[in-house]
Design a protein around this nucleic acid. Structure first.
Lengths: 254, 254
DNA sequence: CGCGGCTTTGACAGCTGTCAAACAGAGTGG
DNA sequence: CCACTCTGTTTGACAGCTGTCAAAGCCGCG
């Protein structure tokens, strides 16, 4: 289960062959249920495992001594945060669930062995860590250069696109089990302002975000407002088409 | 020259042996002088080379269709931006000098051969790309959670620390040949506000930034204001000590 | 039914952006 | 050597987006 999920995740952005898939499937790992708020990996510790999200949602964050929190990104099921921990000695951020989640824990030792024997898997994992970097760069652009509504729309577009690519969304709807406070900490705005922006987007008929579920009502307008271009996700053809097929059906319905 | 510089850069964060160094030194490459404003690598293109900065300063940036620019980071001499291009098909950002600069251009083909033969170099390069990711995460925290003065102080602390680690700074002073507009685009604030913040920091006796040279007058107070902790740079012992030796001499002088 | 977490509102302050113009310094050409 | 240009810096005035503080409303859950 863990290996298959990781395979699926890597194949979003890299090409693997049957032997690679078999090797990945053979990865050992332990499945854990983690409640909201409990850190899976904590700042300052030496990581010895990597993580695959099976269900729920994870976030990665850092805090300032004053208690402010910056969420770097949200992870949807099948995502594998912290692959970069393979070559980092000390965590400079924390990983924890936004809701009770089921995660697969893979010991680094097994991963080292795997990437030693399967160069293509190694390249895929390396590439995965680079795509995360690209996502951070885009987050910087989003959070620093866009104003509230576009900023929020962009985050929603990204999460929905990644969820669709991963096959865990239903049309223009996907789970996003986070609080408005979580959104605020990801977007670098106050909770109050998140709430107002959310209501404005809803009033405009662009999208809904209720009960931890995101529903985009008008993809075209939301993407335009966000100025969203999924290129930075570096998805392979198949995954990209799965994620953007929405454009067509959306247009057809209009 | 190019290979030696890359070696020096990689050794800031990873361990190499004599054979690794020799292989790196043997890397082919071309030296180019690039004027301010001319892109070395552009968004949308397929990268076929990596870059080492020999002198001057580079920046990496992305723009919105409305023309807003986000600078992701500045590179000091010996830095090697775009190592991640090795496993990314299309650039999602641009790399260009902030002042006329001298860069070394290394063809990817040679790098592929190198990392194929020298696992330790491969790991070092991988790690380098991960440290860049950590820097992006920290930028996100800085730009989204700190206010103007602390934000600017943090960027200055980072640049100075990296310059010291790289051995291209003189005490608490280093080159930072960028305009206030560049700073604004890196920090996500307006040029006017950058100017005001800069003057406030200067008036407080914390630091000077004139003529493309940054001089920190009181490291202790600047670092405290910025809440700067260099851990996220993941420097190795020697480099870290070189970069933070400033604390001691600074304290002695007080 | 009461509690606790999350969302929604209102009032108000202020940090930061925008627009415009003055100023300074370096390089250029006459 | 002096205008002149151009880029970058500095100021001023003013608007407004966004944060803060506080309280009320909602909703699931024990």
């Amino acid at each position: 289960m863990i290996g298959e999920t990781l395979t699926r995740h890597l194949e979003l952005i890299a090409e693997l062959d049957a032997a690679d898939r078999a090797a990945l499937a053979a990865l050992p790992g332990e499945i854990r249920e983690v409640p909201r708020g409990e850190d899976i990996l904590t700042v300052g510790e030496k990581p010895t495992v990597s993580v695959v999200l099976l269900s729920g949602m994870l976030q990665r964050y850092a805090t300032t001594p004053e208690g402010q929190r910056q969420i770097h990104s949200f992870y949807v099921p099948t995502d594998a945060p912290c692959l970069e921990a393979l070559h980092i000695d000390l965590m400079d951020n924390c990983l924890c669930p936004t809701v009770a989640s089921r995660v697969g824990i893979i010991p680094h030792a097994a991963l080292y062995r795997l990437i030693d024997q399967r160069p293509r898997v190694r390249t895929a994992i390396w590439r995965e860590t680079l795509v995360q970097g690209a996502i951070y760069r885009e987050s910087l652009l989003r959070n620093c250069q866009k104003q509230a509504d576009a900023r929020m729309a962009h985050l929603f577009c990204e999460v929905l696109t990644r969820a669709r690519a991963a096959g865990v969304a239903a049309g223009l709807r996907c789970d996003l089990p986070v609080t408005q406070e979580d959104l605020a900490d990801a977007l670098g705005m106050s909770t109050v302002h998140v709430n107002r922006t959310l209501m404005a987007l809803r009033a405009e008929g662009l999208l809904e975000f209720r009960g931890g579920v995101l529903t985009v009502a008008d993809w075209g307008r939301v993407a335009a407002l966000a100025d969203f271009d999924p290129g930075y996700l570096h998805l392979r053809r198949a995954a990209r088409e799965r994620a953007t097929a929405v454009f067509d059906t959306d247009l057809e319905r209009v």
